[in-house]
């Protein structure tokens, strides 16, 4: 890696660099030595069957799950881990993790908007409270983001009164509000009614076109194929196949990946 500056944005190395990640839930091994890198502008899709570890991998990037072993570097900054007195791996410096999290915009399967705040308040909360942006500036940017995701009209609505697709679009705007280096999408359309999937995918597609760096866990195979620059197929906590969408979807080397891709194509 070269020319890494502390700021995190002005560097030429990979934005995300994961090395030999291991994670267990009790006796169950979820990640078994996963490595990946993503550069600015990459759209990396993680595909695989349920339980293959793809969501866990995504959640290890911002330490929502703490890996047992391995290294996570965001914009060249390694997230420092230590072992506490109970023998658990924990972040060595929680404030470092909080700081890095503001550079990773996360979008969840269940949107997870804060229902006691309006749409606008949801979006400006972190920029104003944590990044200490002036409120007027945060609101202006939030309004631009709402425009982008097509939710300007609902600026003062409470999340409980929005459809799932609308909530997810607001959640995307909320994640973008910190101007993150990378967007992390954890099955962003899995909780949506089928007729609402399209509007959310459209927003993500637009972001991809703009060159937004993103990691995407998804079951929408045709979408992954369309927007990704790289596709990773996970199986039993390992990366079984990786490459361009063309390579992974049309000529997978691994037998399991071939079966999975075929089965998915039958479904859609």
């Amino acid at each position: 890696m070269s020319a890494v500056k502390e700021n995190g944005n002005l560097q030429q190395g990979p934005i995300i660099e994961v090395t030999d990640l291991h994670k267990q839930f009790g006796p169950h091994t979820v990640l078994d030595g996963v490595s990946l890198t993503a550069h600015t502008g990459d759209v990396v899709s993680l595909i695989g069957a349920s339980g293959s570890g793809k969501s866990t991998l995504l959640r290890c990037l911002n330490m929502l799950e703490i890996p047992h072993r391995g290294k996570v570097c965001i914009s060249g900054e390694e997230i420092l881990l230590k072992t506490n007195r109970h023998g658990q791996t924990v972040p060595a410096n929680p404030r470092q993790v909080d700081k890095i999290r503001t550079r990773l915009g996360m979008v969840f399967q269940n949107f997870n908007l804060w229902p006691h705040m309006t749409v606008l308040e949801n979006i400006i909360e972190v920029p104003v409270r944590i990044l200490k942006q002036p409120k007027a500036e945060a609101i202006a940017y939030a309004e631009a983001l709402l425009e982008k995701v097509g939710m300007s009209a609902k600026r003062d609505a409470y999340p409980g009164f929005l459809s799932g697709g609308q909530q997810q679009r607001v959640a995307i705007a909320r994640a973008l509000a910190t101007r993150p280096a990378v967007m992390l999408f954890d099955e962003p359309t899995s909780a949506l009614d089928p007729e609402l999937v399209g509007e959310v995918l459209k927003v993500i597609r637009d972001l991809a076109k703009e060159g937004c760096t993103m990691l995407l866990v998804t079951h929408e195979m045709s979408f992954a194929r369309e927007v990704s620059s790289k596709v990773l197929f996970l199986h039993k906590g390992r990366i079984e196949e990786s490459g361009t969408p063309e390579a992974v979807f049309t000529a997978p080397v691994s037998e399991r990946c071939r079966q999975f891709v075929n089965a998915q194509q039958w479904k859609s």
Partner: peptide
């Protein structure tokens, strides 16, 4: 709901602020 707290954490909110801004107001609501 756990997810609402997780969203706060994932966006970089420190624990005490998560309590003050999200967890407690939501519980009281």
């Amino acid at each position: 709901p756990k997810g609402e707290l997780e969203a706060a954490r994932a966006l970089g909110m420190p624990p005490f602020m998560t309590v003050r801004r999200i967890w407690l107001p939501r519980a009281i609501q």
